[in-house]
Design a protein around this nucleic acid. Sequence first.
DNA 1: GAACCCATGTAAGTTGTTACATGATTGA
DNA 2: TCAATCATGTAACAACTTACATGGGTTC
Lengths: 195, 195
Amino acid sequence: MSLRYALLGFLTTEPSSAYRLAQEFSESMGWFWYASHSQIQPELQRLETAGLVTSVQRDGDGRAKRIYSVTAEGIAELESWLALDTRYPPVRDPERIRLVFLDMLPLDAARRHLERHRAHHQELLEIYLRQSLEVRTGVFPRLTKRLAARPPETHDVVIGLKTMALRGNVMRARTEIEWAEDGLMWVAEMERAGA
Amino acid sequence: MSLRYALLGFLTTEPSSAYRLAQEFSESMGWFWYASHSQIQPELQRLETAGLVTSVQRDGDGRAKRIYSVTAEGIAELESWLALDTRYPPVRDPERIRLVFLDMLPLDAARRHLERHRAHHQELLEIYLRQSLEVRTGVFPRLTKRLAARPPETHDVVIGLKTMALRGNVMRARTEIEWAEDGLMWVAEMERAGA
DNA sequence: GAACCCATGTAAGTTGTTACATGATTGA
DNA sequence: TCAATCATGTAACAACTTACATGGGTTC
């Protein structure tokens, strides 16, 4: 149930439309918590029913646009969630569970999987590093907006927490890459030994 | 949809009951892919309907027990899944998404969360290290059973893959602990600067 | 006989995915 | 004019969680 709070949190930075939110959840936000358009849409409606957000229709420029804003109750709800202990979901790792049974296929299959794993996390790493650079140089759009929305004395904390969250992603991606490379070395050794 | 294949994979090691499988998925297996009893139960029934497993009722000793075994079709199905490219699910990180919005609460909340995060992964790390030791010393029960079920020339691969999967978990846990500790240092610095 | 483990199963609800449906605007 | 993007919404399904329901066996 983090989606509802991710939406509330987002809306404390700036009011936004469902479409725009879906875009953000496929981009920057999505690197911490992804959600699709068809999940965001009904959730916003539920939040409005619950009185945690309000919306206004803006159709002056032809395109109909519904802009959602967080209410005072919404902020209170978000803050009490923020204080709660995180409930860690159980581990579900689609790559490692495959690996455990990959002794049923020739070693080559394991190498292919590890190469893909490395490539996947390499891609993620590049995105995270680009974002980190944007945060450091102050051109990350979501961050500058949030700074504008939060009191100046909190700016160090706003930047620090964002940096920390991103560094976590960078560290995780690097660990996965390192792990895949260890694995590839092991595969190479096994093949040398087997030949 | 990894659950169905995790079940098939497990059953290639040895035939088992739903109850026993649920236990394993809460223990060793669960550190790669967790599933609850109430999810395993109907999935086994579906697998049987699909002809990928068969079951026999054993109620000689009073307690009724239904033992599931994988069929030849089940093995074929598992092998073709093993060869498929892994579809990585989108990122959903309940701790980091919280952190991003934690600038709305006093810094102390961030420290509490990071301490819990460290403790959580510390616990996982201890479990993983204990399992690694069991694998190295050859007393890990699932592994010895699997070795017995697989041809001798594959034993190095069986052990190697299991070790690799476990090392991935160890590395991940260590990374999360390191990250939390970095974060705690930052929090301490901020508080010193703020005071 | 109470508490706990073994053992099977069901049901209701939440969360998330994939696909469908519609229509206006912008730019090549 | 065709494709892409902006924009809102729905529906069917799959995956997962929490809670319920039942009963035998073991141990204190």
